[in-house]
């Protein structure tokens, strides 16, 4: 009798590929995902509650009168903060005129002309330190340099104080944007017979422009909301500005002044001015995102 061993094919067990919700990794995964969602929502609560509060408290007072009239005195009713809106725009404008050209030229030096020298390393470090500079000190500094020497609070002084704060932001953002321009693009330009000036003007600046503009606009948004540096430099005024060399109103100082007053009318105006300021800053931020998109993307 011959032994016939029947060889059965080996049974292969395929692993299940279905999702097992009770697997330890699946549980960890869903818990962590939930936590991250929860924390993200929590983090956005302050922003949305601030905006909600501003709209509910200040929204009702926003009308043509509030946007154009000058501030009321004491027990007066009505009035507005048109002069403060103008003042904020003028001072931010002065600050931009000073800080944008200087910032971009400084960025050019840091990013392109001399990126590795000692001077550059030190300047870049100082610019970073300046971004964290307490804004009130910018005010005190300009107070000592301009207000005392000219003998008056002025829109000039306010603009210069804001420029001091904008300069490092503009410089560092523009430097970063210019650094992002790939070396091979610069090589291509040099290879076509560009001088260094032509490489900068025709390749580096146009290519880095969206990034540079983003930095500039964010700096403008930041400056529009500043109050501390204006306290010592532009002070405040209850009237429309007649010239640059006189105390000038601004939205942030108006909010500061009016919110502490014992009159309901002024407090309402402070809320309305806050809403205007937030909308302004938000607008600049959105603008920064829009221009930040390059026209010629890959």
């Amino acid at each position: 009798m011959s032994e016939i061993t029947q060889q059965l094919p080996p049974v292969v067990e395929f692993p299940s590929l279905e999702k097992d919700s009770f697997d330890i990794r699946a549980i960890k995964n869903s818990t962590l995902t939930l936590m991250v969602w929860g924390i993200a929502i929590m983090a956005s609560i302050p922003l949305f509650s601030v905006i909600f509060m501003l709209i509910s408290e200040g929204g009702s007072r926003i009308d043509i009168e509030a946007l154009t009239e000058i501030p009321p005195a004491g027990f007066e009713t009505g009035g507005g903060f048109g002069n403060a809106i103008i003042g904020t725009f003028v001072m931010v404008g002065i600050a931009s005129l000073i800080s944008i050209p200087f910032g971009i030229m400084a960025a050019l030096h840091l990013a392109i002309l001399d990126p590795n020298s000692k001077l550059t390393t030190i300047s870049r470090f100082l610019a970073k330190v300046l971004t964290g500079f307490p804004s009130i000190l910018a005010g005190v500094f300009v107070y000592a340099v301009i207000v005392i020497t000219t003998g008056t609070y002025s829109a000039w002084a306010g603009g210069v104080a804001l420029a001091v704060l904008m300069l490092p932001t503009v410089t560092l953002a523009a430097e970063e944007a210019m650094r992002q321009v790939p070396q091979r693009m610069k090589d291509a330009a040099y290879g076509m017979g560009c001088t260094r000036t032509q490489v900068i003007m025709q390749v580096v600046l146009p290519t880095g422009l969206p990034g540079i503009l983003t930095g500039v606009i964010l700096a403008v948004a930041g400056a529009a909301g500043e109050s501390a540096p204006l306290l010592f430099t532009a002070l405040f005024s209850n009237y429309y500005m007649a010239e640059l060399a006189e105390p000038t109103a601004s939205l942030s100082i108006l909010i500061y002044n009016f919110s502490g007053m014992p009159f309901d009318n002024q407090i309402e105006l402070a809320w309305a001015a806050s809403l205007v300021l937030v909308v302004l800053v938000l607008f600049f931020n959105i603008l920064a995102r829009v221009v930040g998109r390059s026209k010629f993307k890959e």
């Binding site: 790939p182 091979r184 693009m185 090589d187 291509a188 330009a189 290879g191 390749v203 146009p206 290519t207 390059s294 010629f296």
Partner: peptide, 10 residues
């Protein structure tokens, strides 16, 4: 060049 390097223009 080795890597194509068009400018970011049209």
């Amino acid at each position: 060049f080795q890597l194509p390097n068009p400018f970011s223009m049209s």
